[in-house]
């Protein structure tokens, strides 16, 4: 893949580990958009998303030492940092309370068992709309809402084994979707 990369990934990583600010500047210019797209597809609140993007870049800056390039691509690592920070934010008590208040005042409703939020058609989340409905729900709940398979099993009243196999099938379909 080449997105106009100035540095080969290994060189970028080594410069980042030396805390070179110009390398970090490049990292931001190059990856901020795709990481932001993941954050906003999980977190509906824009101000919170902005704070999270900052949190994510500070985390990358601090934890770049712990990134091991034999265990995967730099983006994969950063994507997981961004997703984890976003999931932590929306599953925190504060956020859950304010979300409840919002739902009560704005009369947001549920449709077909899927939680409708304004994050639905934004960023990376767009790709799940190409999945079958039952698969889309599982990918949304697990990847974008951060529920465990056990929680999903109880929520949807489906056996845990079924959740597991169905999610695996959903991801195989996702692989086909993103390849296209």
């Amino acid at each position: 893949m080449n997105n106009g990369n100035l540095y080969p990934e290994s060189e970028l990583v080594s410069l980042l580990k030396q805390r070179q600010e110009h390398a970090f500047n490049y990292l931001y210019d190059h990856y901020a958009g795709s990481l932001y797209s993941v954050i906003v597809s999980i977190v509906p609140d824009r101000e919170l998303s902005n704070d999270l993007l900052q949190e994510v870049f500070v985390k990358i800056w601090r934890q770049i030492e712990s990134y091991d390039n034999t265990k995967g691509r730099l983006f994969t690592w950063m994507l997981n940092v961004a997703r984890n920070a976003s999931i932590d934010a929306i599953r925190s008590k504060n956020f859950q309370q304010s979300k409840q208040n919002r739902e009560l005042t704005e009369n947001v409703y549920e449709e077909g068992g899927s939680v409708q939020t304004n994050t639905d058609h934004i960023g990376l989340r767009k790709i799940v709309h190409k999945l079958k409905d039952e698969y889309r729900l599982l990918v949304e709940l697990s990847y974008f809402e951060g529920y465990t398979q056990d929680e999903i099993s109880k929520m949807l009243n489906i056996p845990l084994g079924t959740v597991k196999t169905r999610l695996r099938s959903a991801l195989i379909q996702l692989k086909q979707v993103i390849k296209a």
């Binding site: 893949m1 600010e21 958009g33 795709s34 902005n50 870049f57 691509r73 692989k175």
Partner: peptide
């Protein structure tokens, strides 16, 4: 899969507010 996911994320990139960069740095 990681590469395709990365590509998809780039295709769907959303530019953060420009003033955010200065704040983050």
């Amino acid at each position: 899969f990681a590469l395709n996911l990365e590509k998809k994320a780039f295709e769907n990139a959303i530019s953060p507010p420009p003033e955010l960069k200065e704040k983050i740095f």
